[in-house]
Simulated scan of single mutants.
Amino acid sequence: MTAAVPEPVPVIVVMGVSGSGKSTVGGLLAERLGVPYAEADDFHPPANIAKMSAGHPLDDSDRAPWLDAIAAWIAERGDRGGVVSCSALRRRYRDRLRASAPGLFFLHLDGSPELIASRLAARMQHFMPSGLLASQFEALEPLEPDEAGAVVPVTGGPQQIADAALAALPGHAGAV
């Protein structure tokens, strides 16, 4: 009997609104999969951070260089796998990222506005003010059936959410 060859890990984008747990779950997921993790906030130019810190939502022209930088990181990962957090709220943003790696897999961390607002209010040391949360929910376009991805509810602690995220990955069903 031959041992099963593990499926290669795709590049995974952990997406969702601010406060949904993208950084925490993304880091846990990358650790469990043994692949690098990148925090999308680190790709923002200083002007974007200043704009959001002042309580102003980003527009598409603000997001373009940020998405391009994330896409470049994704393309560098090739077939070696990786996890990156990125809000990826709109389909066109996901399409822009997917152009750099057609096998990209999206994990949408999903929760009610009330739950996310309570988590965002408890968060410290982040430039994204809670006042912008409503604009993020308004902009959110859920994954469509033709997009490789899964929705993971954020009702539970980080370890439970990471377990559910891992189980949602192709070739990892029941891997908790």
Rank of each mutant, 00 (worst) to 15 (best):
L104E: 04
M52H: 08
L97I: 02
P113T: 11
P170G: 10
A122L: 02
K51S: 12
R94F: 04
A150D: 02
P153A: 11
M52E: 05
V11L: 08
P46D: 00
R92H: 15
S130G: 07
A164K: 03
S20Y: 13
H126C: 06
L58N: 07
D41S: 08
S18Y: 11
D59Y: 01
K22V: 01
G131A: 12
V25A: 09
D42T: 15
L104V: 03
Y37F: 15
E141M: 13
M1W: 12
T24P: 06
Q136A: 06
R94H: 02
P45K: 01
P102N: 03
G19I: 07
F106M: 06
P46A: 03
F137L: 01
E114H: 05
S135I: 14
A164F: 00
D42N: 14
W73M: 10
V84W: 01
W73F: 11
V35R: 08
I74K: 07
A148H: 00
P145A: 13
E76M: 02
P142E: 12
A134S: 10
L28C: 07
V17D: 12
H108L: 13
S87P: 13
M128G: 13
V83L: 08
E7K: 12
A30R: 09
G81Q: 09
D41H: 12
T2K: 12
A54Y: 00
G26Y: 08
D41A: 11
A54E: 04
A72H: 10
A117V: 10
D146A: 09
P45M: 04
L104Y: 07
G103Q: 15
R77H: 10
D60N: 14
A71P: 08
A150P: 02
R119E: 06
G26V: 06
I74G: 01
V151M: 15
P113N: 07
L109P: 03
A164D: 14
F105A: 00
M124Q: 10
G27A: 14
G34L: 10
R63A: 11
I70Y: 02
F137P: 03
H108Y: 15
G34A: 12
D42C: 13
G82R: 09
R96I: 03
A30P: 04
T24V: 03
P8E: 13
W66A: 11
A122I: 02
S85T: 11
P129W: 03
L133V: 05
S118F: 02
S20H: 14
P8L: 15
S118V: 06
V152I: 15
L97P: 10
E7C: 05
E76V: 00
E31H: 06
P153R: 04
A148E: 08
R80A: 15
A139P: 00
A167R: 14
A148D: 12
R96D: 07
A121W: 04
M15R: 04
G149A: 04
G82A: 12
A88I: 03
P158Q: 10
Y37T: 06
R63T: 04
K51N: 09
S23P: 06
G34S: 13
V151R: 15
L140V: 01
F105Q: 02
D79K: 07
P65S: 09
D146H: 11
A72W: 00
L97M: 02
F105Y: 12
A173H: 07
R119Q: 11
A167T: 13
A168E: 00
P145H: 07
G131M: 01
A164W: 01
E7D: 14
P8C: 11
D95G: 13
V9H: 00
D163H: 01
